[in-house]
Write a protein that binds this DNA or RNA. Structure first.
Length: 488
RNA sequence: GGUUCCGUAGUCUAGUGGUUAGGCAGAGCUCUGCAAAAGCUCCUACGUCGGUUCGAUUCCGUCCGGAACCUCCA
């Protein structure tokens, strides 16, 4: 099925056609200086959903690359000798700044991988996760090209991209309308002490500072040891791992400027090619209506939620059930509601799995229609909420009395396909848990049943209360009763 | 100040120039000694004020409110 995607470049939904057999997709990954929070996770869930829809609905083969930023201001700051934020779990700090940097970033990279696996991102589908520090020569090569093409200059040992000059040559501001004369008054002009010709210029290569990791670099006969700027890493790694142009570039909305705008400028100024065809950005996440921040106490990592007793699967289902381009308000009330919604679908699947008696001669048109509608929704700019709503309507109107073996098989096939995107449903019969109800509880339940039959309701109710206190619930049925653990 | 997005029932999320949404919560009914569970039913909204139109929640404008970005935040 043809997929439609919103492209930030055109600010409209466009029909997607891959450039080559294999769809090339690049996602801006994390800066590994701390645990990722749920806002970061939204961005990666979006990229994963994109990849899953391309594969499941579009039938494409996808080559997905997600970078790991392991060199930048924050990783340097937090790995610096004597850093107050050094996590003891990483190990002992050394006197080697390079070693400390890699200890810090390797630690948080593996924690990141654990988190995204926990939340159901299919890490097996990530073709590669390049570390910025492993591509320094390629970045230097690109910077040299940009310099030789006349769009960069050296100042104070750093290399800057000359935006002014680039603007005479190409459109700068494709992803974000920029009016330099209207920059907010009082906005920070330059946090660095570097010399830039213009405020709008951005750094490609930063001069070496004492006690910071640095790499050798020679340009135009000058020794410019230092480290890469932030934007250059993506441009260089995309070129190396996907080739330009590739099909889709994903990232958070905040990255469209300056990060992605600068990526475009760099690739075009250096390689002479646009990086990608589709720029796709996800909206942000709020928590209880506010921007997530540590000072507001509404800052959460996946681990925090797990600690509160939430299943990562439920967090996943909740977060992907909102459209990626809408501002997502994360609330615990809505998360709880979403858990119940997920369980309803699961219960439908369970009933489907358990049904063994069938009718004959029933139509399958409604199932085909459900499938088509859901796939159309996914294909329409990954419209998960629309797809879900369609599914709920179907489930609500479904009559199990109409189930035939063929209908059962079709539905299970459909759920299997849906799970290639949702990845939160269980599609095998649940092994009946071994009888874990203690004998004494069973005994109490038997006594209560006897009391009830004798119409001694006072005794029956008090026994039921006792059982409830000990963690079990009696559900009466027409012929007997069922004992379950509380909350099940 | 500039750029952009948003405002949908108690709540969260869709959508549309005309038959009225989906989830959760809530209410009622059936069942039940009473509950629980389950099933059925109900709760019909689009921030304000104008304009266009036979008809506007939808298109246009105004205002009010919220959010983001404006040089290294996903």
């Amino acid at each position: 099925m043809k997929i439609q995607l919103y492209n930030t470049l055109s600010k409209s939904i466009e029909s997607f056609s891959p450039l080559n057999e294999q769809v090339g997709m690049y996602s801006c990954g994390p800066t590994v200086y701390n645990y990722v929070h749920i806002g970061n996770l939204r961005s990666f869930l979006f990229a994963d959903t994109m990849q899953r829809v391309l594969k499941t609905v579009g039938n494409y083969d996808v080559r997905w690359v997600m970078n790991i930023t392991d060199i930048d201001d924050k990783t340097i700051r937090d790995s610096a000798i004597g850093s107050p934020t050094w996590n003891p779990l990483i190990g002992e700090q050394t006197n080697d700044v390079h070693k400390n940097l890699s200890m810090l970033t390797e630690f948080y990279t593996s924690e990141f991988l654990r988190d995204i696996a926990d939340i159901g991102i299919d890490t097996t589908q990530i073709h590669s996760m390049p570390r910025a520090t492993k591509f320094i020569p390629q970045m230097q090569e690109l910077i040299t090209k940009i310099y030789e093409n006349g769009f960069a200059y050296i100042a104070d040992g750093s290399v800057y991209f000359n935006v002014e000059k680039w603007q005479d040559h190409a459109h700068y501001g494709q992803l974000f309308t920029i009016d330099k004369t209207e920059f907010k008054k009082g906005v920070r002009i330059d946090a660095d002490e570097y010399e830039r010709e213009h405020v709008s210029d951005f750094v490609l290569w930063k001069a070496k500072k004492d006690n910071e990791p640095s790499w050798e670099y020679h340009l135009d006969g000058q020794i410019l040891d230092g480290r890469p700027g932030w934007h250059i890493e993506c441009s260089a790694m995309e070129y190396e791992l996907l080739g330009l142009p590739f099909d889709i570039h994903t990232g958070g909305l905040d990255l469209r400027f300056p990060h992605h705008e600068d990526e475009i400028a760099q690739s075009k100024a250096g390689y002479g090619i646009d990086p990608t065809v589709f720029w796709c950005h996800n909206e942000f996440l709020l928590v209880e209506g506010k921007k997530m921040s540590k000072s507001l106490g509404n800052f959460f990592t996946l681990r925090d939620l797990v600690q509160k007793g939430y299943d990562p699967n439920d967090v996943r289902f909740y977060m992907i059930s909102a459209h990626y381009r809408s501002l997502f308000n994360f609330t615990f009330e809505a998360l709880d509601a979403s858990v119940k919604g997920r369980i309803r679908i699961q219960e439908f699947i369970d009933t489907l799995l358990e049904t063994t008696s069938f009718k004959e001669n029933a139509t399958i048109e409604d199932i085909n229609e459900l499938e088509t509608k859901m796939m159309v929704a996914f294909a329409n700019d990954l419209h998960v909420p629309k797809a879900l709503s369609t599914l709920f309507i179907f489930i609500n109107n479904f009559d199990f009395l109409s189930l035939t073996l063929q209908r059962q098989q079709l539905l299970l096939q459909l759920f299997s396909k849906l799970n290639a995107i949702f990845s939160v449903f269980r599609l095998e019969k649940l092994e009946k848990p071994v009888d874990e109800i203690p004998e004494e509880i069973k005994e109490l339940a038997a006594q209560r049943d006897k009391a009830k039959r004798n119409k001694d309701y006072a005794l029956a109710d008090s026994l039921r209360a006792t059982i409830l206190e000990r963690g079990y619930t009696i559900n009466d049925a027409s012929d007997g009763y069922i004992l379950v653990k509380n909350g099940k």
